[in-house]
Every structure is written in C-alpha cells, then in structure tokens.
C-alpha cells in the first residue's frame, strides 16, 4: 500500500547516507525539499507541471524520511549536515546552480543553503517557514503555536508517547491535515519515527529556542515567500518579517484555504506561483571581497 505512494526514480550514496530522489525532465534544475513528516511525495502535484514547463525537477527524500537512509543518532540531523546532503546530491547530478524550493523543514534547509552556498542558488522559494532570524525571537503567540516543537525534545519518551494508544497523540497533533493517513504508515517503518523526530532534537533544543540568533548573511537570490492562512503552527509574521533578510528581490504570497500543507491543499496555485517566479528575476550582485590595504 505504501509502496504505491512513490515517484522515486533513483538513489545515490552521498555525504555518507543513501538518498532516494526523483530526477525528471530537462532544463534549468529545480530542487524541491519537503518537510516533516513528508517525503518527495509532498510535491506530487507540482513535479509534472514543472517538468512540462521545461524544468529538470530534483525531489529528494531528505535523510530520515521515505526511501532514504535513517541514521538513528541525533547529531546526524544537524542542519548543516542536511544542507550538505543537498549539495552532495546536486554535485552528484552535475548541477552547479539550481532553483531551491522548500516547505517546512525543507524551507529551513533552503534558507541555510542560500546563506552557505549563494553561488549554487538561482531562485529561492520558501513555503510556510520564514527566515531563521525571524523565528529565533518568537513572540509568545508563536511559542504557543509551536508547542509541539518543544514536545519533541525528550528523547526516547516522545516516540512512545506519540505511538501509544494507536498513535493517538500523533493523530491529535496532525489533525486531518496533510497526508495524515499516510504519515503513521511511513513513520511506523523501522527507525523512521526516531529519524523524523531527530530533526527537532538536533535543531530546536530548548536552549536554541531561547538563544538570540546571531548574524545571518543576507540572501542574494530572488526570493518568494509563501504562507497559508490555515497554518496552525507558524505565524504570518515569520514569513513577512523575512523580507529584511533578503537582499535580492522579495515577493510574498499569502494563500487562503490551505492548511500548513500548501502544496497539497492548493496544488494548482502553488504550481502557478512557482512557474511565475522561477527564472524571472535577477539576483542581487554577489559582493566581491574588498581588498584590505
């Protein structure tokens, strides 16, 4: 049953882990990065239209999810490591510069990819999750909305709590949103739940929740931010506040009648927004290093 929910075409061993991915079409490459607890399958409504519009679509299962490797240790899920997975995968595929599109954790990875690898990013499109500089000083309201992030911090306990009584707590957290019927099936596979929760453990410890994040380099790529009014965990200010961190052109789109899972709830609108954005803008000038005399 679960095996039908896949469009994967290939797999590669990169950065010390097996990454399964979709590689479809020819043209300017677009990398689609899913979030928690999805897989490449999140993008099932966007992949073919992007291919038909002349893009080469790369949609990996991020480590820990779907058909990719699932290391069990928390350290394996540091954001930089996951960014390096994407770098290594694109290098493996002979891609030097790509449009980067991310949702949820995939958006957080896309932001960091844009900071660390400005020359490898053509256009950047982020869904749901704004710039980490905004998120690192959450309002009280936002803290309450992302209560579940803090909940995932107790290793060993939360798997058990989420699974007990027929995954009751997990189902309460997810509600009827996203691929809610598919998620428990995916996460019940050996090691999958721990791997997925490790994203939260490695990157949002209570300590880092409270730490005021330091300097992020400005994003030079033209950037499209998309947020949905039905998102129960993330606030609009997280996305709109991202504008000041983007030096390239900034575009913001608010999507109505969609939960957190925008690509599933408004598939045609997301496709249209991406097609109207990717490849349309020029990047801000990459700063040249000043010579100090």
């Amino acid at each position: 049953m679960t095996t039908k929910d896949t469009l994967l075409t290939d797999s590669a061993h990169v950065n010390g882990v097996d990454i399964a991915y979709v590689d479809k079409g020819e043209g300017d490459p677009v990398v689609l990065l899913h979030g928690f607890p999805d897989s490449h399958y999140l993008w099932r409504h966007q992949i073919d239209p992007l291919v038909e519009a002349g893009f080469r679509v790369i949609a990996p299962d991020l480590r820990g999810f779907g058909g990719s490797g699932k290391p069990q240790e928390v350290e394996a899920y540091d954001m930089r490591t996951i960014v390096n997975d994407v770098v290594a995968l694109t290098q493996h595929l002979g891609i030097s510069k790509a449009h980067i599109v991310g949702h949820d954790w995939g958006a957080a990875i896309a932001w960091m990819y844009a900071f660390l690898m400005p020359r490898r990013v053509d256009h950047l499109a982020v869904l749901s999750v704004g710039h980490p500089g905004v998120f690192s000083t959450p309002s009280i309201e936002q803290r309450a909305a992302s209560w579940y992030m803090l909940f995932y911090q107790f290793p060993g306990v939360s798997e058990q709590l989420l699974r007990r009584n027929g995954w009751r707590l997990f189902k309460e957290i997810m509600g009827g949103e996203g691929d809610h019927q598919r998620y428990p099936r995916e996460l019940a596979k050996p090691g999958a739940l721990t791997a997925a929760l490790n994203y939260y453990r490695a990157n949002r410890s209570p300590e880092s929740e409270l730490r005021v994040e330091g300097n992020f380099p400005p994003v030079l790529a033209p950037t499209l931010g998309i947020w949905s009014s039905g998102d129960k965990a993330l606030l609009e200010e997280g996305m709109t506040g991202s504008a000041k961190f983007v030096k390239g052109s900034w575009r913001y789109e608010r999507v109505e009648d969609a939960s957190h899972w925008i690509p599933l709830d408004q598939p045609e609108q997301v496709t249209k927004l991406l097609l109207g954005f990717l490849g349309t803008e020029k990047a801000a000038a990459v700063p040249t290093r000043r010579r100090r005399l």
Binding site: R163, N165, G166
Partner: peptide
C-alpha cells in the same frame, strides 16, 4: 500486531 491498528486508522 498492535501497530497495524494505529497505523491502519484506529482511533482511541
């Protein structure tokens, strides 16, 4: 086989 219930759509 308890996970087959939870994963198969059982609701407490």
């Amino acid at each position: 086989v308890e996970d087959a219930f939870g994963v198969g759509g059982a609701w407490e």
